[in-house]
């Protein structure tokens, strides 16, 4: 018997750490990693509730999230590599053309 709030706290912690990582990291790949953290937090939430209500919907959804996350990482890394090819850098501070 695991108390639900613990699961949820875990998920919240992972999520906020992921947010910090998205906002604070310079390297684009590291930003993508932080996004993965956030997705996993969401998944934990889903699984937790799924087991609570004995509803398989949550787990199916979690599977879909994993699939989407995989696709997203693939595309994201392709874009990062293209940026690296063009700019010789994936430092997000230096990839800021759309500014005043």
């Amino acid at each position: 018997m695991i108390r639900l709030p613990l699961v949820l706290f875990f998920s919240a912690a992972l999520f906020s750490i992921g947010v910090y990582g998205v906002l604070a990291r310079r390297n684009a790949v590291l930003v993508l990693m932080s996004i993965e953290l956030m997705l996993n937090a969401v998944n934990v939430n889903l699984i937790g509730f799924s087991q609570l209500w004995r509803d398989l919907t949550g787990q199916v959804f979690a599977l879909f999230v994993i699939a989407i996350a995989a696709a997203e990482v693939g595309i994201g890394l392709a874009i990062v590599i293209l940026i690296y090819r063009n700019r010789e850098t994936i430092n997000l501070d230096e990839v800021s053309l759309l500014k005043w």
């Binding site: 947010v19 998205v22 906002l23 604070a24 990291r25 930003v31 997000l92 501070d93 990839v95 800021s96 053309l97 759309l98 500014k99 005043w100």
Partner: peptide, 17 residues
């Protein structure tokens, strides 16, 4: 106000969150 347009994606994300 134009200084908001920094071009820095992470800053935009910060504002978003």
């Amino acid at each position: 106000l134009r200084y908001l347009q920094s071009g820095n994606v992470q800053r935009y994300a910060a504002f978003l969150f």
